[in-house]
Simulated scan of single mutants.
Amino acid sequence: MTFSDKRKKKKRTILLYAASEIDANMLYATNFHAPDPFIFIKTAQGKRVLVMSDLEIDRAKATSNAHSVLSLTRYTELAKKRLGRKSTHISDVISEVCRDLGIRSVTVPESFPLSVADRLRKHRIRVSSQPDPFFPERLFKTAMEIQEIRKAMRACEAGMQSAVDILRKSKIRKGLVEFQGKRLTAELLKRQINSIVFDLGYLPSRTIVAAGKHGCDPHDEGCGPIPAHSPIIVDIFPRSDKSGYYGDITRTFVKGKASDRVKKMFRAVFEGQKWALQSIRHGAKAKEIHRTILDLFDKRGFPTGEIEGRMQGFFHGTGHGLGLEIHEPPRIAINEIVLLKGMVVTVEPGLYYYPTGGVRIEDTVLVTKTGIKNLTRFPKYLEIA
């Protein structure tokens, strides 16, 4: 089934049981933030129903998108009475609600708790799972979602600018970078970035400032002193505290003078990303984009594979979907995915070699019928004097 096929909505009863603070499907379905698991049902007729605790019921009535908000306490008591028990499992409560709504069959995501599903089947409720994307419409961003991602990107860029400002004000002494008379560390840069991002209403998580050898691993968060004349990967991906939408940006800098090898790596990554940005459009094939960048890097003298006992070169995907999750479908990699208008994806080729370090450049873009709209504004340059 293609993504375009999945856009066609099927009549089914959807059941979710999760905490929307950590489950993107639940947040998407309800537009309601809660730290504890709660019940969401969308009937085949399209009616959205929440079952909430006494703690959350009034807030859910006021701020969620539900047509009906039911009392967890009431249905717990009904389940106890019907089953003749002093205590109940959440599956008993869900069964009671389904009984009341005339529901005998539900579709759940693959992340749905297995124990709950098994118990629901004992209540003679048919439970079937659907793989991601559970809500196919999440693949295609609305105008509101695009605006939220744009705002998240501005927060990313403010954090990135704060890192650049510190690097510009820093001095080089004995091969290391110093700021205000002290050694500049990855930890200090991350604190500065995270502080700026947080003040703008976004929640930073595992911000990457990976200098030198730390940059050889794409997800090494980085630590310790920042070496001069070495590549520094800065990857910022905060989440809006209000809307839940993410931004994502990566730039690579060198404080001082980059080596010829690092300059060649940067030019290759810049060229590969530029080609991808020009090639992405409605109908573009993910695998063709990724393979072309791999081939380009290989022709520039940057092979990919296991070298001296570790992965080196370009060994991650060219990009991924972005929205209520930092990594969500679609993936730009070796797969059968066709990019379609309305998708928001990152474009982030990179090169990683030990002990040189890494170079990665990442923009976030909206796929259109004829190309892209780049949601990223931050410039791309390597050296900071």
Rank of each mutant, 00 (worst) to 15 (best):
S4P: 04
T2K: 12
G283D: 01
S111Y: 14
G84N: 03
R12C: 11
S230F: 11
F40A: 07
V97S: 15
S128A: 10
V359L: 10
K169P: 15
A286I: 06
H327A: 11
Y354V: 06
S128H: 11
Y353D: 08
F198Y: 14
S68V: 15
D199Y: 07
H219D: 14
I332T: 04
Q161S: 03
K299L: 04
F266R: 00
L366E: 08
K380M: 08
K122E: 14
K171T: 12
M1S: 13
L27I: 04
R206S: 15
R121Y: 09
L55C: 09
D100W: 05
V49L: 03
K47Y: 08
A66D: 00
K61P: 02
T63C: 06
D58K: 10
I14A: 06
D100K: 08
H219L: 14
S240P: 01
S95K: 06
L339I: 08
P330C: 00
F378Q: 03
P35C: 09
A60M: 02
G215M: 04
I90G: 01
Y353I: 13
Q147M: 11
P204A: 03
I232D: 06
F112K: 05
R291D: 12
G256P: 03
R173D: 15
A258F: 14
R121E: 15
T304Q: 06
A186H: 03
K182P: 07
F253T: 09
A228R: 00
D165F: 05
H282I: 06
A44L: 14
T250A: 07
M265S: 09
T76D: 01
S129T: 13
V347Q: 07
R310G: 13
P355Q: 13
L366K: 11
D295A: 12
V262T: 10
A143F: 04
L296G: 07
I236W: 00
T376A: 10
M52G: 01
M153G: 05
S87I: 12
Q45C: 06
M144Q: 14
S170D: 04
K174L: 15
S162V: 11
K190S: 06
V359G: 05
K369N: 11
L27T: 01
K174C: 14
S95E: 12
A62D: 15
K174S: 15
T43P: 11
M26Q: 13
T207V: 02
R239T: 07
T73F: 09
V197C: 05
M311S: 12
L366Y: 11
I94A: 03
S105W: 05
I361S: 01
A24K: 10
D220N: 10
E56K: 09
S53V: 00
G201A: 02
F237S: 08
S20Y: 14
K299S: 08
Q312S: 09
L15N: 03
R154S: 05
E221I: 15
I39W: 02
P131R: 02
Y381H: 08
I166W: 11
Q161C: 00
V177Y: 03
K80W: 07
